[in-house]
């Protein structure tokens, strides 16, 4: 299984969370917000200045800095084709 960092997804791409790494506080916050392994995440958009990013997880929208998105390893499940 090939995993990539959540931060490297392109807008519209979906992935399934494989692992959450990073320091304890960040990791705990991420899993509390529902980024747990096996969950589907979709990268919705990148902020106008290039950071942070917005993802959809468990049906709601969450923003996180690329720094934090790096600690989420995902397996790409769909390329997505959002007409934007």
């Amino acid at each position: 299984m090939i995993t990539v960092e959540l931060s490297s997804l392109k807008p519209g791409q979906k992935g399934r969370v494989a692992r959450v790494t990073g320091d304890a506080a960040v990791r705990k916050r991420l899993v509390d917000m529902g980024i747990t392994s096996g969950t589907e995440v979709e990268l919705l958009r990148v902020a106008p200045l290039g950071d942070p990013v917005e993802v959809r997880v468990k049906g709601y929208c969450l923003s996180l800095r690329k720094e934090e998105a790096k600690s989420v390893k995902v397996e790409i499940i769909s390329e997505g084709n959002r007409a934007r």
Partner: peptide
Amino acid sequence: GEAEPFVMELPP
């Protein structure tokens, strides 16, 4: 101290 994670909900 470690930077507070910017993990923030974007509510509808």
